[in-house]
């Protein structure tokens, strides 16, 4: 399976927001909250359920530069953590 064709989106139980008190982006979900750093926010705001991971990576690479291969690993590590916890959904396009 070519994982990069899958287009992740934020699960309905989680929400990406701006915390006005702390002046930071956050991801809120039933059991807690993630306080995001700028790169985590950039990744999550691209997870709209339409862009495949490969496109997210190239978008980030064009915005911030850097080695796309290393970037892809970082993005996947971050996404996988959220996928494991059900905060992100990543349907397999072949199942559609």
């Amino acid at each position: 399976m070519d994982a990069d064709l899958r287009a992740p989106r934020i699960a309905s139980k989680a929400s990406l927001r701006w915390d006005a008190v702390r002046q930071k982006p956050i991801l809120l979900y039933p059991e807690g909250v993630l306080i995001l750093n700028p790169s985590a926010e950039a990744i999550l705001s691209l997870c709209d359920g339409r862009r495949p991971v490969s496109e997210i990576v190239s978008e980030l690479a064009s915005r911030y530069g850097g080695d796309p291969v290393a970037l892809e690993t970082d993005v996947w590590n971050f996404l996988q953590e959220l996928l494991d916890r059900g905060l992100l959904l990543c349907p397999d396009p072949k199942e559609k």
């Binding site: 702390r22 930071k24 956050i26 059991e31 807690g32 306080i35 750093n37």
Partner: peptide, 22 residues
């Protein structure tokens, strides 16, 4: 007690120390 504040995953380890309740 089980509500987790995941400062690590957010990579903002000092966020808890800003002093505001979550």
């Amino acid at each position: 007690a089980s509500t987790r504040l995941e400062k690590d995953a957010g990579k903002q380890p000092r966020a808890l120390d800003l002093g505001f309740p979550f």
